[in-house]
């Protein structure tokens, strides 16, 4: 997989969606694959995002709400959004409080598709 292609996807998402500040792609067990970060540690974001995604999936099934769409966390200073990339990885996005969450969901869909494809084709080559 081309790491530059992955980073280009993350930068493109930041430029397309107002409010997106930083992002990272990680494996489901919390290891960094690639990141477009500024102030945060990609390792920390990856590890916490993996735990968040696992918890969100489990929570959804336990309470009968079925399959996880995404995890959205809202804090005073903004949002943390975690999307699953197939069953092997995740995309974590940090955004400020101006984020239009609905727009992010729409705009991130093709990014999630392309990142999933990138990771799957890399896996097939390995």
């Amino acid at each position: 997989m081309s790491l530059s292609a992955l980073k280009a996807e993350l930068q493109s998402l930041r430029e397309r969606v107002t409010g997106v500040m930083e992002s990272a792609v990680a494996t489901v067990d919390g290891l960094v694959v690639g990141a477009d970060t500024d102030t945060v540690s990609p390792e920390t974001v990856s590890a916490l995002a993996a735990a968040t995604l696992g918890l969100g999936k489990r929570f959804g099934y336990e309470v009968g709400l079925h399959e996880l769409r995404e995890v959205v966390i809202r804090c005073r200073g903004g949002y943390i959004v975690v999307y699953a990339l197939g069953n092997i990885a995740l995309l974590a996005i940090l955004a400020d409080e101006g984020l239009d969450v609905t727009r992010l969901h729409v705009e991130s869909r093709p990014t999630v598709e392309r990142l999933t494809h990138l990771l799957a084709s890399e896996r097939a080559r390995a």
Partner: peptide
Amino acid sequence: TTPASPGAESLLIR
């Protein structure tokens, strides 16, 4: 309100 500029809440708290 718009994602392009801080709203009153952001102006007050941030």
